[in-house]
Design a protein around this nucleic acid. Structure first.
Lengths: 341, 341
DNA sequence: TTGTAGGCGTTATCAC
DNA sequence: GTGATAACGCCTACAA
């Protein structure tokens, strides 16, 4: 904590006015209550003294901290940094700062972070960690804490959210594979307790029911996490159960990279033996070997919209929750090709 | 901001004790002053009521916020997330939370972030953005703000820092290239106003002076930023000036990826025509095409040590600044090979 | 062992 | 238009 802090009283004394007057001058909303000459004098003296308002104290008094909590499941997943930047840029333009934390995909740590954020009186929360059944979401609603979900949604609550059109994404991936004349397609899904895990799997199965390809349950596997390791393990399971598919739709890019590893271990090559698609178009996915065919999601826009929604909610606490759905588009690269057999 | 907050008075009233007693119970350092039965009763009631201390109010009173500022130059650079995780893990184990911000390599935004952090009474600051001449560092020292630099250091100030042995790293890269019998080696550096930019370039030139290879000034270029784009541009400049080198040492992995692009544009292949080395061994550098030969730095340890140093400094403000230097090691992958000519 | 009182820095609400 | 006062929620001498 910095010493020799100059506070509002010091400024008031130096300017020969009352602290309240200084407060009014320094708050844009109340500056008009003060005469112009006093205002300019106070401002100049405040600048000279290097005065900076303590948002701790002012937050205590006003009940607003101009701080927003942001919880990310895994900062090492390159898809999140661009989203975070969209959030930070948008918030800081409005004088807010983001308290960013990485929950490491761990619900306990999520709760601990949330408690720490609450103790710091955050004005709102952006959650990228939502589960289909999420106690944090319920807690926010009980607490009347302004909340926006980003990238993932939750099942049973009515919450403002900015998400991707997962169903469209999966459809695009599968149309692409069908255009290449794949008919035996496997699905490597994510955790079933996330909307992205469950939703993308359901979209896959939906396509099967519509008779778009030959659907087989043993060609579907849900991984325990959205990580390369989990993807590798999952792909091994798929390969063990059924060796005959020619393409795999993965529920995100990290899982797709895990596929690469499992295929290599089985002496199979991508895309020659098996085509692979990802989801997210995370940074660097174009540099992988092979470059990954994937669904591009609007990383920055996801963050921007989430921040804007939250600010709106903070200003109007009675706001009706709404959902913004962003459409992904397919980016075809080197991991998909016509089946070789 | 949450409504219906239960505060220390509510707990006190429910437990039939004075608020100060509750305060003592809930503060581990003062719990022993209170009789055991009162303590347990208060704790139970606090839990029932869902009481959570306001660190805003307690911070205002005690001058400590248990919040640490962390400024990163570019969250999209995959080398930083693992460092951040090391920081967050270490801090949260001690009850601190990190206020993480991305300065986007922009000094003005850096200053704005710093001001926002100061207003929130952070207890200390971890800076990954240090410049050789850094006004923020000076400001921290003036303010007596506990400060630790990570990854980069600064020139003229005596500050606690956790950095890499850049000279060793460059030596390892060049020894490797020499072992492959490269003699015409170029250097693609970073911004000269960062210690990593300048230090790594100097290490390269030092090797030249020692006669380890044929040094030529036109084979050295310092990029304006540590980004893929800047690396691409820089590599184009190198290729324009002198077409005869067989290897490039890049000052970090993103610059090395930029090299890949420039080489491809020139119809040159890596490593066949030109070998490339990076620096950082950032996540996914093993998956690039070709997989990048680079210096592995201790990402997690960098973060852990920085956090530990900062906590030590907070506890003992008079602590003598010290420098922790971590040794990198070479990871040989597919981007280096013997010269083909 | 527990209660009392004052203050951390700010701002909302009065009064002048 | 400006000053005075109290309060936000908590902690800590000091008193009892």
């Amino acid at each position: 904590m910095a010493k020799t802090k100059v506070n509002i009283k010091d400024v008031a004394a130096a300017a020969n006015v009352h602290p309240s007057t200084v407060s009014r001058v320094l708050n844009p909303a109340t500056r008009s209550m003060v005469s112009a000459d006093v205002a300019t004098r106070v401002q100049q003296i405040a600048a000279e003294l290097g005065y900076a308002r303590s948002s701790l104290a002012s937050g205590l008094r006003t009940g607003r901290s101009y701080t927003i909590g942001v919880i990310i499941p895994d900062l090492s997943n390159p898809v999140f940094p661009p989203v975070v930047r969209g959030i930070e840029r948008t918030l800081s333009a409005e004088g807010y700062i983001a308290l960013l934390a990485d929950s490491d995909n761990n619900p306990k740590s999520e709760q601990a972070i949330f408690d720490a954020l609450k103790a710091r009186h955050i004005d709102g929360l952006i959650l990228a960690t939502a589960h289909t059944d999420d106690s944090l979401v319920s807690e926010c609603i009980e607490d009347h804490m302004p909340l926006v979900l980003v990238n993932r949604t939750t099942d049973d609550q009515d919450v403002t959210e900015v998400i991707n059109n997962d169903e469209l994404g999966i459809q695009l991936a599968m149309s692409h594979l069908q255009d290449l004349s794949h008919t035996r397609i496997a699905f490597l899904g994510g955790p079933e307790n996330t909307s992205t895990g469950m939703g993308r799997r359901q979209a896959f199965e939906q396509q099967g029911k519509l008779g778009k390809f030959e659907y087989r349950p043993e060609r579907v596997f849900s991984c325990a996490a959205f990580t390369e390791d989990a993807g590798r393990t999952g792909m091994q399971a798929l390969l063990a159960a059924d060796h005959s598919f020619t393409a795999v739709v993965a529920a995100n890019d990290l899982l797709a990279l895990g596929c690469y590893d499992a295929l290599a271990e089985h002496g199979l090559s991508c895309p020659h033996d098996v085509s692979v698609t990802g989801f997210n178009d995370m940074p660097f996915s174009d540099r992988m070997s092979p470059p990954l065919t994937t669904l591009h999601i609007q990383h920055d826009e996801l963050g921007v919209q989430a921040a804007l929604m939250l600010l709106a909610e903070i200003r109007d606490p009675g706001m009706v929750p709404n959902t913004i759905t962003l459409d992904p588009h397919l980016v075809v690269r080197g991991s998909t090709a016509a089946p070789s057999d």
